[in-house]
């Protein structure tokens, strides 16, 4: 399937789902599970089991079904959420804060995506480099992965901002940043980040712990040549948020259902199918703190990274 066709298909499905959802609001008791993904077809399969499971679990509350809406980008999702057409979504820490901040959504639970509750971002430089700490980044270039990445952009970028560094977006990693500031580029892939650092294309790269440990992303040969210069505070791996106006009973019931899933043998397979999730639980204090900090940093961040 060509990318054009896939895109069209995604749009068609999204519109269909929207239509369904719209009609469902009139009819009572349909919960809409949203997701931002560029491959609705693939992602639908991951969401469908838990959607059905939750639908069953929420039946006592009058919810008759859980419908799935997948959109390709966050701004669209933001709009849908604002319009009250998405009830529940699983997001990264930054995506969750974004929705809470911009669309009035509320944090519901922490999801152990890939079996992990929390993770951190790692700043690394080449062994040959003279960069020892983040303070040495002035006049250097750092590579993030993607604008939407929490661990490989939002969190570390916030951290750099807190460090007082002036960040300057660059079109190409080969450019030199303006004097006194630090340049940044998006590598587009975690592997690219590792290669760029290894080959001296950029000075510092940022990756999540999980990527760091993935030999396909950062080969052991690279690890040997890399030096970690800074580590971020831990942050939740994934965060469940619900629409601000969602019925509190439903929200509670949903939380309870999710929290109980890892104890239900029948639900384990459903959990696993959803991005290797181990369990759902409550956000820890640290998580809340981190999320708060992100939330605080967000306005300035938006200024700095338009």
């Amino acid at each position: 399937m060509g990318p054009e066709l896939a895109k069209q298909l995604r749009q068609i499905i999204a519109v269909l789902l929207l239509l369904c959802a719209t009609s469902a609001t009139a009819a009572p008791r349909v919960l809409v599970l949203g997701a931002v993904h560029d491959d609705p077809n693939e992602h639908y399969a991951a969401l469908k089991p838990i959607a059905d499971y939750v639908a069953a679990a929420l039946a006592p509350t009058g919810i008759e079904s859980v419908e799935i809406v997948i959109v390709p980008d966050r701004s669209q999702m933001l709009n849908l959420m604002r319009d009250g057409r998405i009830d529940w979504i699983s997001e990264t820490a930054f995506g969750a804060v974004h929705l809470v901040e911009r669309a009035g959504a509320e944090f519901l639970a922490r999801r152990w995506k890939d079996g992990t509750a929390e993770y951190r971002s790692l700043f690394f430089a080449h062994n040959d480099s003279d960069i020892e700490t983040l303070d040495d980044l002035a006049g250097r270039t750092v590579a993030f992965e993607h604008r939407n990445s929490t661990s490989a952009f939002f969190a570390p970028a916030v951290m750099l901002g807190e460090q007082g560094l002036t960040l300057h977006a660059m079109a190409s990693p080969r450019e030199a940043p303006p004097p006194g500031s630090s340049g940044y580029v998006f590598s587009g892939a975690e592997y690219n980040t590792a290669v760029w650092v290894d080959k001296g294309i950029v000075d510092v790269g940022v990756l999540s712990e999980s990527n760091w440990r993935d030999a396909e992303t950062v080969p052991p040969a690279f690890i040997e040549r890399f030096r970690i210069i800074a580590v971020s505070e831990p942050m939740p791996r994934a965060v469940e948020v619900v629409r601000g106006g969602l019925d509190a009973d439903v929200a509670d019931a949903l939380r309870e259902a999710l929290f109980a899933m890892h104890e239900d043998a029948a639900a384990l397979q459903v959990l696993n199918a959803f991005e290797g999730t181990a369990r759902f639980d409550a956000l820890s204090d640290t998580d809340i703190d981190t999320l708060s900090r992100i939330r605080e940093a967000l306005p300035g961040f938006r200024e700095q990274f338009p």
């Binding site: 080969r174 590598s187 587009g188 892939a189 592997y191 690219n192 294309i201």
Partner: peptide, 9 residues
């Protein structure tokens, strides 16, 4: 153009 090493790989 993007030095996308992964895609190149």
């Amino acid at each position: 153009y993007a030095l996308d090493m992964r895609s190149l790989r």
